[in-house]
């Protein structure tokens, strides 16, 4: 029992970061119908932001949570503005390709500036762990899981209620119709990329203490976040959060009770099974009929 609880906690710890990363991908896709393969690089830049704020500038960790997400969001919006907007008139295919190589360009840029195997950032919580019976719960794990869940759920609710999100939802539902109703495509797209980028930034700040900052981070994050997004139902925000947590737990469970060498393969098996048997995802936003 204790062992299972420990495994679940470990899974949730990483699942929470997957969830945040997946959330940004889904948000951007929902509003702009663009699949952002550069998202992993955004997360890397978010984690690097945490390093700059906490280690290089020696500021408080909380400032990282405050400053980094809007900065990454602004970068994402800028990229949308300068790079992807001209492509919007072309086809979706070119945009996807562009994001793949944009991600590589960004990660390489980071690597060129900080040529190190690993940069580390201390956790904002260093105190003694809580003991729930025999189960150990460190403050860092508690904060990562609870904090990212809060942000994830907050985003989901905000997207449902807030005024700014209405345009995005309208775009998601009916692109042409939204335009006719006076929603500006340009503004909505920029906003979606800003929010998606900001979510990647938060994911990065959370990931920094748990994963460190290394050149492999983008590909590791993007693969997991995509699996989480697909499992959740690609256009469902709550699905992305649930998918991320589920993926984290399934991966860890499978590695603990199966073969640890096959950990990555198992996440892909999950993806495969979901795509084959429930292509609309496990937690679809609205039930749509395939016509």
């Amino acid at each position: 029992m204790t062992e299972l609880a420990l495994v679940l906690l470990g899974g949730l710890n990483f699942g929470a970061i997957y969830a945040l990363a997946a959330l940004g991908i889904v948000l951007i896709h929902k509003a702009t119908k663009t699949v952002n393969f550069a998202h992993g690089a955004f997360v890397l830049i978010g984690a690097l932001g945490a390093y700059i704020v906490q280690v290089q500038l020696s500021w408080s960790a909380w400032l990282a949570y405050l400053l980094v997400p809007p900065a990454v969001g602004a970068l994402a919006a800028l990229i949308e503005l300068v790079l992807l907007r001209p492509l919007r008139r072309a086809d979706a295919f070119s945009v996807v390709i562009a994001t793949v190589f944009l991600g590589i360009a960004l990660s390489e840029g980071v690597r060129l500036i900080y040529n190190a195997e690993l940069l580390t950032v201390p956790s904002p919580f260093q105190g003694a762990p809580f003991l729930i019976g025999p189960v150990i719960l460190t403050r860092e794990v508690l904060w990562t899981v609870a904090g990212s869940l809060l942000i994830g759920i907050g985003t989901t609710l905000a997207f449902r209620r807030a005024r700014v999100a209405r345009g995005m939802r309208a775009m998601a539902a009916n692109h042409r119709g939204a335009q006719l109703c006076g929603y500006s495509v340009d503004r909505t797209y920029a906003l979606a990329w800003f929010l998606g980028g900001a979510l990647a930034g938060v994911a990065g700040v959370f990931a920094a203490p748990a994963k460190g900052i290394s050149p492999d981070l983008p590909i590791a994050v993007i693969a997991a976040a995509f699996v989480a997004a697909v499992v959740g139902g690609f256009d469902s925000l709550k699905g992305a959060v649930a998918g991320g947590l589920l993926l984290g737990v399934v991966e860890t469970l499978a590695a603990a009770y199966g073969d640890s060498a096959l950990k990555n393969a198992i996440s892909f098996m999950l993806l495969f099974v979901v795509m084959l048997y429930r292509p609309e995802g496990l937690f679809p936003e609205v039930k749509t009929r395939h016509v």
Binding site: G10, N13, K211, L253, A255, A261, N264
Partner: peptide, 20 residues
């Protein structure tokens, strides 16, 4: 013996096995 993939960050499963 427990293995992990290059650049792995999550070792929960392997550590639990050692605990066992």
């Amino acid at each position: 013996v427990e293995t992990f993939d290059q650049n792995a960050k999550d070792f929960t499963a392997q550590l639990v096995s050692f605990l066992r």
